Computed example of a mutant assay.
Amino acid sequence: MDIQNVTEIARGRWPMIFDRLGIKVPKRGKHGPCPLCGDGVDRFHFDDKEGRGTWHCRKCADKSAGDGLSMVSRYFDVSCYHAVRLVVSTLGRHGK
């Protein structure tokens, strides 16, 4: 599967995907500790705009932000290709 295909299938499913991968994020619209830098109690915000898993951290060295796929890639320190494979593994057969 290509990146565009996977991100479309994952749309609206990022909280479940993160949970299945063991990535702790606060509920949509809430603040909490950053799963990437592990710092603070309210520096990380999961806004999930348009169901794309969007987020931002005010503490990470580069004041990070991104979408669900970038979170998976950075959390596991893997390439985008490997992040796609991890996401697919959480979606089951054909994203159902």
Results as ranks from 00 to 15, higher is better:
residue 1 M to K: 07
residue 2 D to N: 15
residue 3 I to L: 13
residue 4 Q to V: 14
residue 4 Q to D: 15
residue 6 V to Y: 02
residue 7 T to Y: 06
residue 8 E to F: 12
residue 10 A to D: 05
residue 11 R to A: 14
residue 11 R to L: 09
residue 12 G to L: 11
residue 12 G to A: 08
residue 15 P to V: 09
residue 15 P to M: 10
residue 15 P to A: 09
residue 15 P to I: 10
residue 16 M to G: 07
residue 16 M to L: 15
residue 17 I to F: 09
residue 19 D to L: 10
residue 20 R to D: 04
residue 25 V to H: 02
residue 25 V to W: 02
residue 27 K to D: 15
residue 31 H to N: 11
residue 32 G to A: 10
residue 35 P to L: 01
residue 36 L to V: 09
residue 38 G to Y: 07
residue 44 F to P: 02
residue 46 F to Q: 02
residue 52 R to V: 02
residue 52 R to D: 08
residue 53 G to Y: 07
residue 53 G to C: 10
residue 55 W to D: 01
residue 56 H to M: 03
residue 57 C to K: 03
residue 57 C to M: 07
residue 57 C to R: 03
residue 57 C to W: 05
residue 58 R to V: 05
residue 59 K to I: 00
residue 59 K to G: 00
residue 60 C to I: 03
residue 62 D to R: 12
residue 64 S to D: 14
residue 66 G to K: 06
residue 66 G to Y: 09
residue 67 D to I: 11
residue 67 D to Y: 11
residue 67 D to N: 15
residue 68 G to V: 08
residue 69 L to K: 05
residue 69 L to D: 01
residue 69 L to R: 07
residue 70 S to E: 14
residue 70 S to F: 05
residue 73 S to T: 06
residue 74 R to Y: 00
residue 76 F to E: 04
residue 76 F to L: 08
residue 77 D to K: 15
residue 79 S to R: 06
residue 80 C to F: 08
residue 81 Y to F: 00
residue 86 L to P: 00
residue 88 V to F: 00
residue 89 S to P: 02
residue 89 S to D: 10
residue 89 S to I: 02
residue 92 G to H: 11
residue 93 R to C: 07
residue 95 G to E: 01
residue 96 K to P: 04
